[in-house]
């Protein structure tokens, strides 16, 4: 099956449908956005007993999810990222994470992919705030195959989890054999000059950047963190030791997200020069992707430039140290 030819939301719905067939305890919860997350025509139609639409009431959706989880169900609760994270932060904190209920929260249209819905719907802090919550895992798969592997893992685990779901089609990065494990990164390219780390939506752009960087003679270690929490400390430290310089890229506020996670790991284990690319502590807005990449300087040309600069800044020092 060529899942990369499908929209990611369609892959979400199709995979959830498979999982429901395997385990009838899996439930799909929506808050009047089931058409946006792709489950309306798949789960509601084929598995009506496993589909609950709570209406425009996200706090209640999380609470109902918690109650279902108490009874052994495995609810997947989806909404746009701001409404699946910051709007219901206390409900997730207490009824899910603190109470240790096995609820899966799916934040759709992450970061700048919220596009035309603009600043109110463009959430740049979900990775940050969900990462700061004890007993919460945070994932952000980059393509259809990793999404499927991630969902299959989530369906089997008992871990409260937040996952970002990109809605449109994404280019193929992995294949059907890809596996997902929390705290395990994917090394997409091996290089020696600079470590480039991305997650979710931004990994397709870091892959593009790597092509350009190779042409410029910059050898890049490219790490994709589909699991942002727990994060693959070992892979990050090993790569930083090898290259001596790190660039992180995310469609999130650079405060608190992937870049911060990498800084935390390296500052305590192997202090390394790091450049964080993403949103420099600003709100979103109605705009095209191109405009937002230019404004916040985290598109492919900016990734390339940051890596070239990182190589220049770290090359001499790193060689001295090694």
């Amino acid at each position: 099956m060529n899942y990369h030819e499908m929209e990611m939301r369609a892959v979400y719905a199709a995979t959830l449908s498979e999982l429901v067939k395997e385990n009838p305890n899996i439930m799909c919860l929506e808050a009047d956005l089931s058409k946006a997350s792709g489950t309306f025509s798949v789960i509601k139609k084929n598995h009506p007993k496993n589909f609950i639409n709570v209406g425009v009431a996200e706090a209640n959706m999380i609470g109902i999810g918690a109650g279902l989880a108490v009874e052994g169900k495995i609810p997947f609760c989806a909404s746009f990222t701001p409404f699946a994270s910051r709007r219901v932060y206390d409900q997730i904190t207490i009824s899910v994470a603190y109470a240790n209920n096995n609820v899966k929260i799916v934040g759709t249209a992450p970061g700048i992919t919220a596009g035309p819905n603009g600043g109110t719907h463009m959430c740049f802090q979900d990775l940050s705030i969900m990462r700061a919550m004890p007993n919460m895992h945070v994932y952000s798969p980059a393509d259809a195959y990793e999404l499927r592997a991630t969902l299959k893992y989530m369906a089997k685990s008992t871990q409260p989890t937040y996952m970002q779901l990109i809605r449109p089609k994404m280019p193929k990065i992995f294949d059907e054999n890809v596996t997902f494990a929390p705290g395990k990164a994917q090394i997409l390219r091996e290089g020696t000059d600079v470590t480039l780390i991305s997650t979710g939506y931004m990994t397709k752009f870091t892959l593009q950047a790597v092509g350009e960087l190779e042409a410029k003679g910059v050898s890049v270690d490219l790490i994709h963190c589909g699991s942002v929490k727990p994060i693959d400390e070992q892979a990050i430290i090993a790569s930083a030791k090898k290259t001596g310089g790190v660039v992180t890229v995310e469609t999130q506020n650079i405060i608190g997200g992937l870049g911060s996670a990498v800084c935390e790991v390296l500052s305590e284990n192997h202090p390394t020069r790091i450049k964080r690319l993403g949103i420099p502590d600003q709100f979103g807005e109605v705009a095209t992707e191109k405009y937002l990449f230019e404004k916040h300087k985290f598109g492919v040309p900016h990734i390339v430039a940051a890596c070239v600069e990182m190589k220049e800044k770290t090359a001499k020092k790193h060689k001295c140290c090694s």
Partner: peptide
Amino acid sequence: DMTTGSLGQGLSAACGM
């Protein structure tokens, strides 16, 4: 049967149960 303490959340959980 359910951990509570942040007011307003228990009835939703009871609905889920």
